[in-house]
Design a protein around this nucleic acid. Sequence first.
DNA 1: TGATTGTCGTTCAGATTTGAACGACAACTC
DNA 2: GAGTTGTCGTTCAAATCTGAACGACAATCA
Lengths: 161, 161
Amino acid sequence: MACAYTEAVMDPRWLDATEMAAWHAFVSTFHLLERRIEEQLKAAAGLTHPQYEILVRLSAAPDRRMRMTELARDVVASKSALTYQITQLEKAGLVERAHCPSDERGVLAVLTDAGMRCLERVAPGHVEVVRAYLIDRLSREELHTMTTAMRKTERALRSSH
Amino acid sequence: MACAYTEAVMDPRWLDATEMAAWHAFVSTFHLLERRIEEQLKAAAGLTHPQYEILVRLSAAPDRRMRMTELARDVVASKSALTYQITQLEKAGLVERAHCPSDERGVLAVLTDAGMRCLERVAPGHVEVVRAYLIDRLSREELHTMTTAMRKTERALRSSH
DNA sequence: TGATTGTCGTTCAGATTTGAACGACAACTC
DNA sequence: GAGTTGTCGTTCAAATCTGAACGACAATCA
């Protein structure tokens, strides 16, 4: 009754019980899963989740390289956060920086061979966690619905900035 | 083809295209939404999302108070992160600390009247963002499926620690 | 009771993120 | 081509998070 989400029940703009349940479940679950993923990656390879995501994106890019800004957009990180993480990964020998041939301002993040090997070594354990707690618990139907729902929101958020 | 998620297609433990799409959509969307929420809350009241969530939980608790550990579990924060945030909210006059009558070690976080007013003032704008980018874009059916899916994962994660 | 073990919340150092400011270059306009 | 505006990536200070260590108290058990 005192909850800020449901208090003004007369106003249709507030969240009803179903909507509130969906939202809270979404937020809590993500944080819990994120925590478990961090734990697994740290133990397996001393990597953080943002660092792992960077390696994944680079491994899938042509020539295993990507512009800083594009990479930041892909992994949803701020430019300064990406600068910091690329520096860390460079110290670890997993990524290198290269000049961009087509733009003098540009910097390319390049996955090294060591970075690729690291990813191949770590990925199975990571995927196992994602499976164990999310993917394998959902039916094909649920998986599809969730993807559709997430994409709608992602599209709306990306197009408004 | 070089993506670490799909490379070893012979191994059924890897994620196929559908699963990978679901996972990436989930992670990206959450980060984008989180970013937008932070932006809105900061502009509206100088609050962070974790701080807002703390106020919400306290507002819904009996006597508007909660034990630190329980609160930390609810908002999925580490104990030290909660200690820090409660200190910040105390400085802002939105929350107070009180002794726990039943346990000498315990600390109760208590929502002040100012905290309650702040929450009532900020909540509509916050809910509007959650609606605009997530809730209102999903059908009742999708909302229900997502909640069910998230709850399965949440349950698995909470019960294994 | 006394001893052991566990939980509570805090502290601290270190790691990471944020957002504003910046210099360097690119793109566009006239 | 000079001037304006925009983008690129980095830097910096400040804010926040993490995880291990800690002292204080609670719970359990002999």
